[in-house]
Design a protein around this nucleic acid. Sequence first.
DNA 1: CTGAAAGCGCTTACAG
DNA 2: CTGAAAGCGCTTACAG
Lengths: 343, 343
Amino acid sequence: MTGMTEIDRQRRPGPRIEEVARLAGVSKSTVSRVINGEQYVSAKARSAVQDVIARLRYSPNHAARSLAGSRANAIALVVSEHGSHVLGDPFLAGVLRGVHAELTGRHMQLLLMLSRPEDHDDLVSYLSGGHVEGALLISLHGDDPLPARLHEAGLPVVVGGRPLSNATVPFVDSDNFTGGLDAARHLVSLGRNKIATIAGPKDMAAGLDRLGGWRRGLGEAKLAANLVAEADFTPESGARAMTELLDRAPDLDGVFVAADIIALGALQVLHARGRRVPQDVAVVGFDDSLLASTATPPLTTVRQDVEQLGRTMTWRLLGELAGEDGLPPSLLLPTSLVRRASA
Amino acid sequence: MTGMTEIDRQRRPGPRIEEVARLAGVSKSTVSRVINGEQYVSAKARSAVQDVIARLRYSPNHAARSLAGSRANAIALVVSEHGSHVLGDPFLAGVLRGVHAELTGRHMQLLLMLSRPEDHDDLVSYLSGGHVEGALLISLHGDDPLPARLHEAGLPVVVGGRPLSNATVPFVDSDNFTGGLDAARHLVSLGRNKIATIAGPKDMAAGLDRLGGWRRGLGEAKLAANLVAEADFTPESGARAMTELLDRAPDLDGVFVAADIIALGALQVLHARGRRVPQDVAVVGFDDSLLASTATPPLTTVRQDVEQLGRTMTWRLLGELAGEDGLPPSLLLPTSLVRRASA
DNA sequence: CTGAAAGCGCTTACAG
DNA sequence: CTGAAAGCGCTTACAG
């Protein structure tokens, strides 16, 4: 009687390969070959099997296929982030578009998984459990051990955005250093000589690399590279940083801001403080997001192709899954300066 | 030599349950029991096994567990939508927040999957392949056969938003009918007697149900319910619909708009046409999204709790997975009128 | 409390 | 081109 409360162990219904084989008058092996599109199957056997499959609406059990050594036909895109607010992030949207585009027609499912550090155990366990053939990771902060853990677990992984540590795992990133360099050079070419920067968070390579490029650009021109403030990816923090910079150097005449969304806050402060853009202060952003063209004035910015980032990550991962050799361990995607009114 | 180009069949590395058992000096059965937290294991055996698991960093193969009859420890949230723009949708963000909240501490992974109709075959195949214990579906349009297909495949499914057909599949929805009814009653109580509505798309139950509630409300007051225009979830379509309504009935004095985002466009047109809100035309929206409180004037609207929707869907699905009985087949969540300046 | 054995539903050498 | 058989890595009655 105590058994009454037990959950019925419900096997998924539907036919098995066994039944398909029987009705088609062939062996399980042959059915398997048809399912997997192998070539050495007689036309007769193939069509018999296909008929039965259609009639029975048979669908193979992925867990069994995966266990038996076949592929899961799915990859995961893991976003190492806390809240659901990341969903609104245009970066994620762009990457996702690229991933989807690259996956088109490949019969590969994409699993989008949001994970915070405290859930990493469960995540690693799931991902390395054969449900997925590989993983794409984005939005990693600091030296998140996730890529290394998955890599150790034997799962093919590609990281979007250079990880701060874990040099062993292949990554794809925009060439943030050159982007920062181009921005600085552009400001210099405009005759500016008191050039500041609002850098991104320094727990992400994008922030560090853009800052590094800016430093290099000022160095080339023998300009001091000491006007640095930091912000995270919000207009508010950009406003704070701009305020700080103006207090330190009221006569600054150029600023490279590590993201368009940060630049929005900086522009507001410049305006409030009576600085004309670009006459008094030239401003260069980064991303070329929608915000850049609708800002006042329209923002000169460094364009990165986020969709291409997604495509390239996917291409790299699929290449590895296909066993291609000669794949580049990591890739840097070019950026380009988009000139508008602000600089 | 032709074999050279073949892909190395790479078995995932790492220890197997067999090795754990050997090192711990017990049987595979006992290791399995420890892993699954069963009670009849001696403290000694348990700790020996746990030590070895920790030392080897052993992680069970999900495909095998799933095949052997155990659970995948994951559910999917399937968004039946085309582009990556859905990611920016506050509805999805809210539902996701609710799902995550309900999943907290349950060691259940959430797979977010975006799928368009043409990929349904692959999707069904993946989901019914044991990678997932159940699925939550949202953003279904028209009579999407997806829920029925998954249901037939034996996968527990809960739909968010009443499906137009497929009455067999359990769903959770906001009580859109009552919401529309309350909106209409409120407009009536304000003394309005020429009341229009801008309805949502009629391939979604939310659109139909809100319209139905509005009709009922006008009927109660013996008012004609013939001023109906339709819009999709954009301000532009709301502007078009409002224009059409004003052309048809220049003297209308109240309008119920099926979504706040649509109401935004309607408000613009009312303003452009010199109608004062609420003096000349009272406006009631739906959703109580962020847009509602920041609109000009702030929008009176019908609040639906999208996060609660996500929680409830998840609760319902987990209940089914746990074999609970007495679960309600479907649920309707209450809405409430939020009074602000527009009506 | 524990272990040997069967079985989950497939794939894949191997031998025709 | 095809089938019998072994095996993927687990779980779970069953019998102690």
